[in-house]
Amino acid sequence: MPVEQKNKRCASCGEALVGIYCYDCGEKIHHRHEFALAHYSREIIYQITHIDAKIFKTLQLLVTRPGRLTAEYLLGRKKPYIRPIRLYLALSMLYFFSFSFFDKAALLDIRLLLKFDFTGRLLPALQAKQQLLGGLADELFYRSINQQLNNKISLLLFLAIFIYAFVFKVIFVAKKRYYVEHLIFCLHLMSFSFLRDMLFLPLYLLHKPAGFGLALATTVVYLFLSMKRVYGARV
């Protein structure tokens, strides 16, 4: 007989038990045979395949149905999908990790930024920094700067989401939605951007302007379609 059934109390929170899950904290009723090797192996296999199914379902919806994941979440259908913050963090880490090997295709490439620096202040600052680092070879120096830049921007982008959500709150003020609802929309939008950029990585490496052009187009279309689904046809 399970320990908690004897005591009629949840092992985690001490709440009186009704059924196999604690209605207060969700803890499953404990059976000692759960630690039997055969049972435990089955449980591990189930957990792994269950998470896989969740990931697949979430990513499929994120890519093929703009805004649907947010709509589902806002309707309270959360269980079948990965939570927005977890999805964002996982995709963001994967993104910055994969792009750290291909710094030329990364979000911020100092060599590309140099071409668009009309103030003329970037080159002297870079030269001074290179001197400071003991005259590191150009290739190594740019790679190191790109890595530092992308590490910084990964944190700053996370902060930017809170500002993006505020912009949504202002633009869709008539919709009378909570700030966090906009935040969830933005987390899904950014998650899509990371996923798309990872899929576009070969294109970025082959032809960067074409890759950026396509990324811009997909962002605008995706933004439009997901806003239409989540916020309705009118602002």
Partner: peptide, 30 residues
């Protein structure tokens, strides 16, 4: 909705630009 998309995209780009400048400043000048 199309106008809102353009406005939001412009706002996103501007915010990203500011953060990119901030990152460059922190890496090179700070």
């Amino acid at each position: 909705m199309a106008l809102a998309t353009v406005a939001l995209y412009a706002a996103f780009s501007a915010i990203f630009g500011i953060f990119a400048l901030l990152a460059i400043y922190q890496v090179l000048l700070a």
